[in-house]
Amino acid sequence: MRPILLILAMIISTFMEAQTRILDTIYANDTKNVALFFPEPIRQGITGSENFVFTYNREKEQYFGLLQAKQGKESNLLVINRNGSIFSYIVRYKAQLSKLNYFIPMTSSIGNEKPKVKDSIQTETFEKKIDNSTYYYQKFCSYLLDRRQYLGRYTRRNSGVIMRLENIVFDKEELYFVIQIRNNSTLDYDLNFLNLSVETRQKGKKKSLQRLYIEPIFKHHLPSKIVVNETVRFIYVMPKFSLSNDRRIILELNEKDGERNIEMKVSHKYINNPN
């Protein structure tokens, strides 16, 4: 009994943190085996009363254990997986069982026996870095939208919807694509997506084109709708890259539930020589 008491004492703090959580109840009896399948192999399993028995492979860790019960007062079952995840349940005797198999998800874990302090610190540092980057992107994008600098030739239109690539700016390790869309049509424009891809022109007798989508790091003021006679300006922040002579950028504007789509091709020269 002493090892059991030591184990229970070791994890009592975890139970204190989860005391407000309502524990699920598992029913068992002495004529059938109730199987519990866990997301990780079982390292330890303990019941709080002798009229409940939880058996599992102690020599070779496996994902399941078997629960049986004799008639008596309810108790509890504590299971610790190989990765330290802790699961706790109320166990009760029931003569007639309606459920013989329980598949336990990781989300049912009430905690972990080893606090991941290092991981928490790393996560906090990472989140702080993300917050600082987002703040900088927002400030620099606002600065660029206050400026008026146009590349000139990059304007495309379709049925009164006009897309213009105003500027490409390099800063630190990112490229900022400043884009303007004007709706001169008689219908509102619902934006489905605006994708930026790199298109490669394959050489040879059978010429072909391949496109590789680039995920923006940050989107500033991207609209979901452009109403009639409205002009919107927004920015895509992309990771820094350069292009060879056989590649170019494709900006693809797509309308939701419509056909006023626009495709703009941007030369590698503007990507390799941004403002």
Rank of each mutant, 00 (worst) to 15 (best):
Q138I: 12
P216E: 02
K114G: 02
Q149L: 09
R260W: 01
D246S: 03
T123Q: 14
R2K: 13
Q68P: 06
F87T: 05
E59Q: 14
Q44M: 12
M264W: 06
V227E: 15
K203W: 14
K265V: 06
T186F: 01
L187A: 08
Q180V: 02
K205F: 10
M16P: 06
I262G: 08
M106T: 09
D190I: 09
L6V: 12
P239N: 01
Q44T: 12
K114E: 14
K118A: 10
V53N: 14
H268M: 05
F37M: 11
K265L: 06
K219T: 07
K269S: 04
S159C: 11
I271C: 03
E127S: 12
Q71S: 06
L77W: 02
K99Q: 11
C141V: 06
S242P: 13
Y176A: 11
E50W: 05
E166S: 09
S159R: 15
Q202W: 02
T231E: 10
Y135L: 09
K269D: 05
L144E: 13
F37H: 15
I4E: 14
V34R: 11
E40K: 15
M1N: 11
K99A: 02
L97W: 02
E59D: 14
T155P: 05
P3I: 01
L77G: 00
H220P: 01
V178N: 07
S142P: 06
E174F: 15
K32M: 11
S88K: 14
L97Y: 05
I7Y: 08
I80T: 04
N112W: 03
I12C: 10
A18M: 04
Y213C: 13
K225V: 10
K269W: 07
L23C: 01
T123R: 14
P3A: 02
Y150Q: 15
V266I: 15
C141T: 08
G72W: 00
L243W: 00
M1W: 07
T47H: 10
N183D: 03
L191R: 13
E252N: 13
S159H: 14
F15W: 15
F126M: 03
P39E: 05
I80F: 00
L191I: 12
F234W: 10
T55I: 11
R92S: 06
F103C: 04
S242C: 10
S13Q: 14
L251C: 04
H220Q: 08
N272T: 01
L251P: 01
E61N: 14
N273A: 08
F241W: 04
L191E: 05
E230I: 01
T125S: 02
I179D: 00
S108A: 11
G72K: 00
F87L: 06
Y27E: 02
L251F: 11
D131C: 07
A28P: 08
V161R: 13
E255W: 04
L145A: 07
R21W: 13
L243I: 00
A28N: 05
I181K: 06
C141K: 09
R153T: 08
P3L: 07
L145V: 10
